[in-house]
Amino acid sequence: MTEQLLKVEGLKKYFPIKSGIFGRVSNHVKAVDDISFSVKEGETLGIVGESGCGKSTTGRMLMRLLEPTEGKVTFDGQELTSLSNNEMRKARRDIQMVFQDPYASLNPRHTIEKILMEPLNVHNIGDPKERKQKVHEFLEIVGLSSYHAKRYPHQFSGGQRQRIGIARALMTNPKLIIADEPVSALDVSIQAQVLNLMQDLQKELKLTYIFIAHDLGVVRHISDRVGVMYLGNMAEMADTEDLYEKPLHPYTQALLTAVPVPDPAFEREEVEIQGDVPSPANPPSGCRFHTRCPFKMDICETTIPIFAEVEKGHSVACHLYEESRPQ
């Protein structure tokens, strides 16, 4: 059995909403509200969900780029949530992030070489000569050339900049990469190049990925397991095949049937949901999906459904499956 590399328990992030002239906290945005999951070594866990459901907030908390309001994150046997800032900085050598907009995260005044060198300087890896060599090596690995090292970010296309973002994340030989919408800003032809690259690198370097995206096609392609978030909660999590072939949560079902399929002959079974996502500052009582759920029952308005396994490796938070759960 493969080992768990990352374990997340009861993770929460409440952002205070301040109001009035004294800036008193009047309410909270419950961006992430009590989610738990784990990631096995070498796998790719996809996280999907619509805008504002808390995907990025979750990703950032795992690295403690954002401090969790509550909850425990254990990585490679070490409890990250109890580390001092200094210890956490060291731990980040093993966990790196790739962002949606590499341009915004690449300093426009620095050469690519300088940008890629930085994580090595921060973590004190190698001497200057080795560092330089490593930069060139990783440029080649991500499909660029050493002569690109002297150039500046604006001289690259979107796809190339994303390759640089990936190269930077790889510089410290991390175990886990959290990729937050790494291909969302790219055109499909370039998206395919970057997805293939990430898959190749995973095999070669034995990486574990948490892949955050809103594109369900992309997530199916790259993930071994997938978690579906809705309004700060984890609605469902399962092996990719199970989730796409046999979605249990009504929200997952609706989400899957809403995706336009590139095949005019395709006839969909519609699970249409009405209305918009409610505000995370005032989430609905009980099940957060009850305001849009076509299967809503009375209990859904009053009682929060527990996120638990209903079949092997398939967890869901929905009252419809209460009975099928092992007690």
Partner: peptide
């Protein structure tokens, strides 16, 4: 090159 939501392509 488009990933299809309905099935897994081995490689794009």
């Amino acid at each position: 090159s488009v990933p299809d939501m309905r099935f897994k392509k081995e490689r794009l």
